[in-house]
Each structure stands twice: as structure tokens, then as C-alpha cells.
């Protein structure tokens, strides 16, 4: 990743995009619960990474920093009423997904949909925590960096406690949904 240390920000972002783009876009889609929103925010996050390359100080891994930037983009979108805007659009008429990224029916099985719906039952912050810890296998310090609010890190201990609560809640939901009787 020599480009990261050079002044060629665009090249660096392209490399980062190739390495971690898909997982970060999927992360954003999951946090927002919507692929269109995820793709849009991912574009924003990439632009933010490019704009903010000079501020990357190497205190965390570049991947972790990319996640933090993406997380900020999601937080900003939610704060700016992205949800409200979408709800408003829905009032105008409920519009379905166009051509982009359509999963064929045989892939989007009921099983996957039900897993997705369980995750959707969590608030966006907890979805982010779950994905970062379980699927992205980040350590607590990295997660604390990604989940930091306005530059102030959240303590790893607090995150760990919160994760326990998320697990308990998910287990209750899964039980209610009949997963453990199947």
C-alpha cells in the first residue's frame, strides 16, 4: 500500500476500494437496511476517504479507518433525516428497486431473508456492532475506533457489555421466531 504513504490519494482510495470496497458497501447496506442507501452512502464514504486522506494518521489500520469513515457517513445520513426523506418518498408512493443489484430468486432464499429480518430488528448502531464483531472479526479497540462519536472513542468495555445485550436480544427474537425448534 505504498500509495497510502504517497500523495496519490485517488490511487490509494482505488486500492482501498478494490481491497475492502465490497465488504464496506455490504456493511453500509446492512446498517441502513437497504442496498440503494448502502450504495449511495458508500459513494459518499469513498469521497470522504479521498478528501480526508491527508488526515489519516496511521493510528489504526487503513481498513479500520475506512470503516470509521463509512460509519460516519451512515450516522450523518441518519441524522440528516435520510429515513425521514425515504418515509416521505414512501408517502408519495411506494417505489420498488430498479434494475440495480437484483439478487436472483434462488439465491435470496427465505432462510437468508429471515436472518436479515432478525438483524433488521436491531437499531442501526447495534447492527453495526454485530457485523463488525462477528462477521468482520474486529477486535474491541478497532470497533471502538469505528464506533467513536465525534472523535471520542467509546470504551471497549462498554462495547463489550452492549454486545452481550445485543446477543441476548437476538437470541430472544430468534427463539420467538422459532429458530431453535427447527
Amino acid at each position: 500500500m505504498a500509495a497510502l504513504h504517497s500523495s496519490d490519494a485517488r490511487r490509494a482510495v482505488e486500492l482501498a476500494l478494490a481491497a475492502w470496497g465490497p465488504e464496506i458497501e455490504a456493511f453500509l447496506s446492512a446498517v441502513m437496511g437497504d442496498r440503494g442507501a448502502g450504495a449511495e452512502l458508500f459513494a459518499e464514504a469513498c469521497a470522504d476517504v479521498m478528501a480526508g486522506m491527508s488526515t489519516f494518521q496511521g493510528k489504526s489500520s487503513f481498513r479500520c479507518w475506512f470503516y470509521a469513515v463509512a460509519r460516519n457517513a451512515a450516522r450523518r445520513a441518519m441524522r440528516d433525516g435520510y429515513r425521514r426523506k425515504r418515509a416521505h418518498d414512501a408517502d408519495l408512493g411506494v417505489f420498488e428497486q430498479p434494475l440495480r443489484s437484483v439478487t436472483p430468486r434462488f439465491v435470496a432464499t427465505d432462510w437468508k431473508r429471515r436472518l436479515h429480518e432478525l438483524r433488521e430488528a436491531l437499531p442501526p448502531d447495534e447492527r453495526a456492532l454485530l457485523i463488525l464483531r462477528v462477521d468482520r472479526a474486529m477486535d474491541w479497540h478497532e470497533i471502538s475506533h469505528v464506533m467513536a462519536e465525534e472523535g471520542a472513542d467509546v470504551s471497549p468495555a462498554a462495547l463489550r457489555k452492549r454486545f452481550e445485550r445485543v446477543k441476548a436480544r437476538l437470541k430472544a427474537l430468534a427463539t420467538e421466531d422459532g429458530w431453535f425448534s427447527e
Partner: peptide, 20 residues
């Protein structure tokens, strides 16, 4: 069993809009 399910939930992809 619970661990497998938990990993499945974390890794589930966001379904697209509508299966043809």
C-alpha cells in the same frame, strides 16, 4: 447452534427489492 445462527445473522446479505 446459537453461534452458527449468530454468524448467519451478522453475515446475512440485504435482500434486493423483489424477486422476479
Amino acid at each position: 447452534a446459537w453461534e452458527g445462527l449468530l454468524r448467519g445473522i451478522a453475515a446475512a446479505s440485504v435482500p434486493s427489492a423483489g424477486p422476479p
